[in-house]
């Protein structure tokens, strides 16, 4: 049952898991995600399918520990199993040949960006990757991204690696330098909001993949809803990708804090249970 074949710790807070799931490996497309649950009392959380190997029947998940469930997953080892795993969920990215594409990822957003960036490259685009994080040890998948990108720019907030500055600075520099046809950006909601504002100024078509709170992931509950172009959309079935210029990021940012205090209670209890 959903056995972990391999675990690799990518940084202090980020780990990569290769998990057995033949059906999902066969049917998933770039941009799609799964929902996992650990233990009988666990919560359902969404994670992007970062990669898949149809031959081996495995999928790759990359997780950053931010709270109870992601920490529980982070602590699993190869040989352990997930209690529940369902997918592939969400719409696949519509990948087209458009010319030059910037793929900009922030923090653990680099993981979901990876399969999409790869798909854009494979569709024949020129691909410029911008990887951004607070500091050096939070930059993940740099080598993997470099392997197929035409150019890779690394940005850190504190300047501990690559260029010092925010992801938006990195993107703007490229826009000022050459013709960019599409930007794909995934990261914390606040980062996506500012990238969207920037590219709107330059009228460049921009895609984001949203990471709202979810429960079922199949369109049944509406927990994941967000306003896009003035209409309510369910991220799990209508997305997770949307036109960045249409998304109500402020509304989304608020909704993501819906359970802030409960999450703290849960996480504290979890951490105490481990001492």
């Amino acid at each position: 049952m959903y056995k972990i074949i391999e675990k690799e710790t990518l940084s202090e807070n980020v780990a990569k898991f290769i998990i057995e799931s033949e059906t999902i490996a066969n049917n998933r497309k770039a941009g799609q995600f799964v929902i996992i649950k650990i233990g009988e009392k666990g919560e359902r959380i969404p994670l992007t399918i970062a990669d898949a190997d149809a031959n081996k029947g495995t999928i790759t998940l990359i997780v950053q520990k931010v709270g109870t469930t992601s920490h529980k997953l982070f602590n699993l080892e190869s040989g352990d199993s997930l209690t529940d795993l369902v997918g592939p969920l969400g719409k696949a990215t519509e990948v087209e040949k458009v010319g030059t594409v910037i793929a900009a990822g922030g923090g653990v957003g680099i993981a979901p960006l990876y399969p999409i960036a790869k798909a854009f490259k494979e569709a024949g685009n020129k691909l410029i990757t911008v990887l951004a994080a607070r500091s050096k040890d939070l930059i993940i998948l740099e080598d993997e991204m470099k392997a197929f990108s035409d150019e890779t720019v690394v940005m850190t907030d504190d300047g501990s690696y690559g260029k010092k500055g925010l992801v938006t600075a990195g993107i703007e520099e490229i826009i000022n330098r050459e013709q960019v046809d599409t930007v794909v950006t995934i990261g914390p909601a606040i980062m996506m909001k500012f990238v969207a504002l920037l590219t709107k100024k330059y009228s460049i078509h921009t895609l984001v993949s949203l990471n709202t709170i979810m429960v079922d992931g199949t369109g049944m509950c509406g927990a994941c809803r967000v306003s896009v172009g003035g209409k309510t959309k369910f991220v799990c079935v209508d997305g997770p990708e949307f036109d960045a210029h249409e998304v109500d990021f402020d509304g989304m940012l608020k909704r993501m804090n819906a359970y802030r205090s409960e999450e703290e209670v849960s996480y504290k209890k979890y951490l105490e249970s481990r001492n």
Partner: peptide, 14 residues
Amino acid sequence: MKAYKFPEYDTPIV
């Protein structure tokens, strides 16, 4: 998700 038993169960309700 048994949120009525939160935080024994991980899923919260307000």
